[in-house]
Amino acid sequence: VVYGDEDKDAPITKIRDARPHQDSPLTEDDAASFFHKKGFCLFPQNTKVKRWNEDYLKGMVFGSDITKVYSPELESIIRNYLLPEYHVISVDCPPAVLRRGPSSRNNFYGTGVHQDYGLSLEDYKNNLKAYDFSGQAAKEVQKKFDSDQVCGVMVINFWRPIGGYTKANPLRSKPLAVCDPAFVDNGDTVHTALDATSVGGLKGKQTDQMALKYSPQQQWYYYPNMTDDEVLVFKQFEVWKDDSMDKREALPVRGVFHTAFVDPNTPEGSPPRQSTECRVQVFIGKRKE
């Protein structure tokens, strides 16, 4: 498999414009309802974040707009719109965002279809261990998951352009394609790993994620022309205590496979994409009565 921008041998895939499937103009309630059905949605949000801190350590020690502003904003979206039917036990927002594009620490794009955390809680913990310098992250997740009031855990990605994009001047370069997990067969997933040191992780560890075999039943979408006031929300991982944990082959695919791709409609000379990702871990309790 070639991971690259010019992967002409990849299968030709239909990618649907998801905008006509949601209300226009976007509404929070309709976005939430789409998220329930598809595992992803375009959510309207005017963030008050001014500085997109990408230094996790600094953010943890000194705080940042991400800890002080973005984190409460995202928690409110999760509690009030994405998961209002559940008792949400905890929302763990990182103290920094993963930034992409010029002058960011990651001046490259996630080009290549993948899902980041695997299928089972073990997969997820493996991934955490690959980056965890404290050595405690996986244990803490297991401890939280095992607590009586918790029924499941989810990771939700908030993917947003930050290039000063407006309706008149929207994001045109390298949009994100997302795949509806309901149409992904477990048997078409490929369990993969990266040497953790190649992605800023720990020596001797491996990450844990998935690649995907092409199938004509898969349904791909994207949101053309995003602005700074829109955030693409997608589920990256989800397991429940009710799942049969012993067999990862038996788990349904719930995380959204995704990739950056070259949009043939991008005008020549469009500036490179500037965007952020914020991956939020949510421990979920019982359904509300």
Partner: peptide, 19 residues
């Protein structure tokens, strides 16, 4: 409004297996 549906080469998708 018109949709912007596409047909593109999605990078990194494994080709279907033929046997």
């Amino acid at each position: 409004s018109s949709t912007l549906d596409l047909e593109v080469n999605l990078p990194g998708l494994f080709r279907p297996e033929f046997s």
